[in-house]
Nucleic acid binder design. Structure first.
Lengths: 162, 162
DNA sequence: CTCAATCCCACGAAAACCCATTGTGTCCCG
DNA sequence: CGGGACACAATGGGTTTTCGTGGGATTGAG
């Protein structure tokens, strides 16, 4: 598999009083080039205290990947269980939300809590998917490379100065 | 992998008051022969105080390489973390910017600061990618071969004389 | 009736677009 | 061989469009 359109770049956007956030235009561009949906899928990230996000087309692709994995090792009972667990995580533990004509979603409260997102949302492209962080949590996480934290600090400054 | 079109040559261009720079035509030629995009990807160089730049096709190639590496050792948790970190650096810590019909990009402020670029940008082809330097920093760097500095000095003179 | 989600409009800042000028190198034709 | 005519690159400036964001109005479900 090789997706030809990849998520790239970073942005820091505000979450307003109603819980709305603008999805950065450069990410929306990728979503709409991959498929024609104006929708994103949100999930808790497996490793980091942030959210993982992608487009519906990628969700379908991920599902197909799981299916293939199952067929390869269908004899093992362990594999069966793992498949069930993964499948649950991939679909039940996610939320699909549309964005409006101005590119904003209404942040689902559950996801907002899971991602511990306050009134600032840091978007980070990671190729096939992108991440949404509470910038403060990213700065605190020891596993995040310093260069990336610099970017987060820059985005915060950019906003604070104005 | 072997890219058939390589970046080579040097040029010194001005960054105007709006933060715009012309990408030298000979570099644009390579970009457009590698793929049909009219955009470049900017990243902080890992070793030098300058920026590294390439075309989206090369970014995709780099991504595919990472993916293959992961599949080989996906069992190890260490490998998973390292994969996440690399992916973040490769995509979140970079910016993709389009150039207009006259070949200019708008220099993203974050990258401009990371590369310490003032009002002159020195472009250096390095094969698969190219670099963008503040010419003064290049002249000061002890690791840069004297012959290359001569080129930088020549480009500066060329401009200063006119 | 009430609360909240959706829609619609409005605004300021920034980015993308368009056009105009200059300089340089190239090609062709006298 | 010389001298335009020409094409294209780099740059400056102005104008239009888009983006992120705030604030109502409208709808719809409980």
């Amino acid at each position: 598999m090789a997706l030809e359109h990849l998520f790239q770049g970073s942005a820091l956007n505000a979450v307003d009083a109603k819980g709305r956030v603008s999805i950065p235009a450069f990410l929306r561009g990728v979503i709409e080039r991959r498929g024609d949906a104006r929708t994103i899928v949100l999930a808790k990230h497996e490793a980091f205290p942030c959210l993982s996000a992608y487009d519906p087309a990628y969700a379908a692709l991920k599902h197909a990947k799981l299916e293939r994995l199952l067929e390869k090792e269908e004899t093992s009972p362990d594999a069966q269980l793992e498949y069930q667990q993964r499948n649950l995580m991939a679909f039940a533990a996610t939320e699909e939300v549309p964005y409006d004509s101005s590119g904003r979603i209404l942040f689902p409260p559950m996801m907002r809590r899971k991602g511990q997102i306050g009134d600032l949302a840091l978007f980070l492209g990671t190729g096939e998917t992108f991440q949404i962080w509470n910038p403060e949590l990213l700065l605190k996480d020891a596993r995040i490379p310093e260069d990336l934290k610099d970017i987060a600090r820059f985005r915060l400054e950019e906003r604070g100065a104005s």
